[in-house]
Design a protein around this nucleic acid. Structure first.
Lengths: 292, 292
DNA sequence: CTTCTGTCTTTTATCTACAATAGACAGATT
DNA sequence: AATCTGTCTATTGTAGATAAAAGACAGAAG
């Protein structure tokens, strides 16, 4: 195989859902827009729809013949891009599995294990190296630096610098900035989850990422915003395999977020800084506690 | 060609210099250490030396037969790694040439132009993307974000945060830390260059990088240290193609560095901060002036 | 005359192949 | 006993090939 057709399969699945709601599909360019793909792929999907007797397709007419059945969908495993597969597989090895710092990482072995070519693994490692967890020895292997205490401390140090600066910018945002509206939505979600914490605490992780990213964006600084990727990925995977006290931890963070949000909304720099510091402090402690 | 033998050629050239100083070469492992290469490559070099009648090689005896001549060396163009070639070529296009923000970057075209395979170009772009100057549209081209005023402002904002923090750490370094000794050496170099500024001002660039890297290292934070790569590469290439007032600019920076170094050595946090701020301020102004 | 479709070309994502380089091991040498 | 060399194997860096996806353009349809 030269290229996985995951774009096609994923868009096909999403297009099946669109199809469930109408009696005829829109034009090819419009579908492309809607699904975020090129017309080439749109046409591939339409062809397949026709073959599967889902639509009757003649030029501009794309009439729906029947509702999609569950077995019309491609299995979800097939819709993940190779990069996602490699990322998950790799993160499991280094964050969940007992990966010792100093361990060598072998491109070929990794590729064999994941069942892909070396090129993709290599490109993943290059992209991943900016997270500071691995390092390349030229003409030789990669070295795992490990998800250690020092790593967590260095990460949180920068995070705190950046988030404090971003929070300071946030309170100075003009009243008509879209971020305020976004903040309101996020606040409401916090209250929703908190009201039903026992069954919904798992949704916190995603919300956390959204909230902090919103704050970081206020910095209008690409380096600060980009750095948040590192934080997000580390927290995402780390807590995914480390669920001790998840309910309690998330409940506390939700409360802190609410105080933080209120402080931001007050537009008082000192209050915002204080609330931000308090939350970052406890986030840091929680992270450090969970590292052996 | 599967792999360029630049490691071999570069090490060959360096080994020729070693050969000029002795009548017999050390053991293979020792040579490997000295040149930073594996024994396989050492043996390849020794074989070639033998062919070129430079040495008589029999097991442990590697007697020098004659002094190397200029034409024994490989031309320097052949000793640059592919990554270096691609980097230079690319940086010239985007920093020197009139590259408009929003311009599309095409892997295939770039590869053809440089005369290399797409894989290497692709990997370079991935590595380079962390500098915030380009961005990938998945399944499609890269977009040049451009070396604009905003870029410079965002870069310097983070730089200032990081360097202030690092300088604060520096003054707190224990007296026996190797950084102090390094600082003394760097200071001496500053004075040397300043004493003969008219003919040596071009050496500033390299010294500047060394000095600031030393300061950043005091942070003991990999993210801060790694970030300095971005600053270094941007300044390096930018001033390489932008030499207006280079002599004057460098002289001023040298003076500021000396004040900054003295402040660091005083171990007084307030003085260090002040000197650091002053220098960063003028570095920022100089950079912004040079962007249209 | 604007938007759509059919067709064609170009580029990207990925695999495979192979020379350069690194690295391992056993026997030779000091 | 320690270090070195000869030989062999494994991995990396890079090119080239190919299917998937993007994108360009002319003619068709509203």
């Amino acid at each position: 195989m030269a290229k996985q057709n995951t774009v096609f399969k994923d868009a096909y699945n999403r297009c099946l859902k669109l199809l469930a709601d109408t009696s005829s599909l829109p034009s090819e360019p419009e579908l492309g827009q809607l699904l975020g793909i090129s017309r080439t792929t749109v046409r591939a999907i339409l062809s397949r729809f026709e073959e599967a007797q889902l639509i009757a397709w003649d030029k501009r007419k794309k009439n729906v013949l029947r509702q999609p059945r569950p077995d019309d969908y491609f299995p979800t495993e097939e819709t993940d891009s190779l990069a996602e597969i490699i990322e998950r597989s790799f993160m499991r090895r280094i964050l969940a599995g007992g990966a010792e710092p100093g361990m060598q990482i072998n491109e070929l072995e990794l590729a064999r294990e994941i069942g892909t070519g070396t090129t993709s693994v290599r490109e993943f490692l290059i992209r991943f190296s900016r997270f500071g967890l691995i390092e390349k020895r030229p003409n030789s292997h990669w070295v795992l630096k490990g998800f250690t205490r020092e790593f967590a401390l260095e990460l949180t140090e920068v995070r705190e610098m950046f988030e404090l600066r971003s929070a300071a910018r946030f309170v100075a945002l003009p009243a008509d900035h879209a971020a305020w509206e976004e903040l309101t939505k996020i606040e409401a979600l916090h209250r929703d989850i908190l009201a039903d914490i026992d069954s919904r605490y798992r949704e916190f992780s995603e919300l956390d990422e959204k909230f902090h990213l919103l704050v970081h964006r206020a910095s209008s600084n690409r380096f600060i915003v980009d750095f948040y990727d590192i934080i997000a990925i580390v927290f995402h995977y780390h807590y995914q395999w480390n669920k001790t006290n998840a309910r309690q931890r998330n409940a506390r963070a939700l409360e802190e977020h609410l105080a933080y949000i209120e402080a931001l909304r007050s537009q008082d720099p000192a209050r915002a800084e204080q609330a931000c510091r308090r939350h970052l402090q406890s986030a840091r402690e929680t992270l450090l506690q969970s590292i052996p």
